[in-house]
Structures are given as structure tokens and as C-alpha cells.
Amino acid sequence: MTHHHIDPSEYFGIQTIGLTKQFGGVKALDNVTLTIPIFGITSVVGPNGSGKSTLVNLLTGVLPYDQGIVKIETNSFEVIHAYETPGHGITRTFQEVRLFDQMTVWDNLMVVLTNRKLWASMIERSNGRQGADHREKTEEILKKVGMWEKRDSMAEDLSYGQRKLLEIGRAMALEVQVYILDEPFAGLFPQMLERVKDLLRELRASGRTVVFISHNMDIVRELSDQIIVLESGKFLMSGEVDKILNQPEVIRAYLGT
């Protein structure tokens, strides 16, 4: 297994500076400063309630943050709106699969490719003569995630694994730099697990940034180039896989449990 060598001081993709989020009196994230490098696959690990999903939700504007700054490439943001996410070069999946349930598998992908200009989208008819590129992209992704035969099914009628795959496919339909996947491996059968691993490797091979949250240490070890460890809302450490996973604090905080 080859790993890219990462020097965080030289490259950065996304940086958070003093990021803080409170729910009532509980600090879900407490003054978190970390860097997600632009290269390779980065995994975010930590026990339940350590703030992993909150971090992703803050980065994609799903939740507003209370304090801190997010730097994406050269821009600093004090506020992030959800609709700006693709504009920041980010797309994501959710811990609990969130598809457009009462829409077909096909439409779940096609909707992501729509013209973002409101008036133009009223005229755009991507199932007609126009939008051949959208249809090709959708077909490519559906075949890639193994859902081509299911394209006319309603998303709500899919099995759990299929839903998980479709959601990853929906994120991949957007061509952006950063793909953030919140627990993409949770609850998948081995065969589907391998497929998702392949998708992540493929994204890495095409020069994309992949960030994923996982509790499965074998997969983390197998796929990640860098690991970020959170513990009870605080940034614990980050670095290359072998180095991090041998740290006594990490073993105590996470692996030891």
C-alpha cells in the first residue's frame, strides 16, 4: 500500500480555526483548529459524541457555527450557507441517509446536475433533446454504483445498502474537489463495502480530496492517508495513519474502548 506523503504546512484544502459549536450547554465542537489536506483520503475518527458529524455539518452549512473561521483554499468564511457548498468545491453524504425519497433513483442524480440559475432551469428539459451530458453522467454514476437497473425505482423502495450507495453516487455526480462522506461504510454488506472502497480509491486516483468518517478501524487503516482524531469536541491530533494509530492517547481515547 502506497501513501502520499503529506506535509500539511505546504498544502491545505480546508482549514478550521477555533471552530466552536454549542448545543444548549454542550460544546459539540470546542475551539477546533485543524487542516484537511487537499490530497488523498482523510479519515475523521473519534468516539461517539466526539463531534465528527458536527464538524461536517458546520463545513457544509447544515448547521451555523458559533465561533471560528473556516478557510477553504484561500478564502476565509465566518458564515457558511448550505447552498454555497458546491461553490466551495464540496459535496457530502449524511450519516443517516438523506435521499429525495419520493423521487426516482434517476431523478435523485439528475436533480443534482440541474442548472443552478433559476430561470434557466425552468427552460432546461434534461430528459429531452437537451441535457445529453447530464444523462450520460447519471448513467455513468448509476452503473458505477450498481444501480442502473434500479433507475426507475423510487428511492424509498431501495434497501439500506442501495440507499447508502445511491447517496454516495449522488455526491459523486457533482464534480467538485472535496467529497465528505459521513460513515459511508456503516451497515454495509461485505460486497457493497468493497464497492464503496473502490469508489473512494477511484476518487483519490482522480486527484480528489476524500474525507470520511468511520468507526471501522480496519477500513480506516486500509484507506486513509491521514487521520484526524477528535475527542469530546476537541481536536486531539492528526497525521499519517501509522503514526497516529500507535499514539498512546489515541489508543486510550478511542481504540482502547
Binding site: 457544509t60 447552498y83 435521499l99 429525495f100 425519497d101 419520493q102 443534482v112 440541474t114 432551469s121 432546461e124
Partner: peptide, 19 residues
């Protein structure tokens, strides 16, 4: 395509925003 976005908003407005 506009109509498809409307349906997406109906299904999960926040996800539509994230996209």
C-alpha cells in the same frame, strides 16, 4: 429541471440546499 428541484425541496429542503 426546475420542477425536479421543486420535488427535491419537497423531499428534503436542506439537502437540496447542500447541493
Amino acid at each position: 429541471s426546475f420542477g425536479r428541484v421543486l420535488k427535491a425541496i419537497r423531499e428534503d429542503e436542506q439537502v437540496a440546499q447542500v447541493f
